[in-house]
Amino acid sequence: MTEEAMLYGCVENNAVAQDFLYAHFSPKMLGVCYRFGKNREDAEDMLQEGFIKVFSQIGQYRNEGALEGWIRRIIVHTCINSIKKNKKFTDSVDITFANDVGIREENIPSVMQAKQVVDCIRLLPVGYRTVLNLYAIEGYSHREIGTMLDIEESTSRSQYTRAKAMLEDILVKMDIMLRPKSKASIKMGITATN
């Protein structure tokens, strides 16, 4: 089924086309939800809510960008709304000293698997994790993140810096990545938990 036919079928509320679209995009979108959610069940709930919105709003898709990108934005917004119900993003992690660590490519092993990275991201506190997901992976700016999460832009920046440092530390501790030479020691006291 071509993407055009699939889109037309979904607009017409055709179950086969909807099934096809879901089967095509749901694995990747569940991966997105999994990075935001507390656990797999939580992620599946987000995916469900997100795809219901996708199918109910598919008539609004203007073919102006990639369909996957459009679906992904809806899924991400659904994840954010879900997280916002339960979490305040002003929670912070007290980091006494954290540098904006520059990690070079030679520190990243070529065999590093996607699941390892995602699992490490999910170890971050929810505030850090959300900002890191939105900025580093989804490509939103700090300004947009601030609007989405009802926080200051500067807060988003600092959260991201700290999240990145913490993730690097986790990756190193788990022997997934080599510790960069410029990495300073990090003292963490987590007040926001998953």
Binding site: S26, L30, G31, R40, A43, A114, V117, V118, A136, I137
Partner: peptide, 13 residues
Amino acid sequence: MLKERSDEFKLYP
């Protein structure tokens, strides 16, 4: 690296 690896990640619902 984060983006590439994360985009590769898939889960089947």
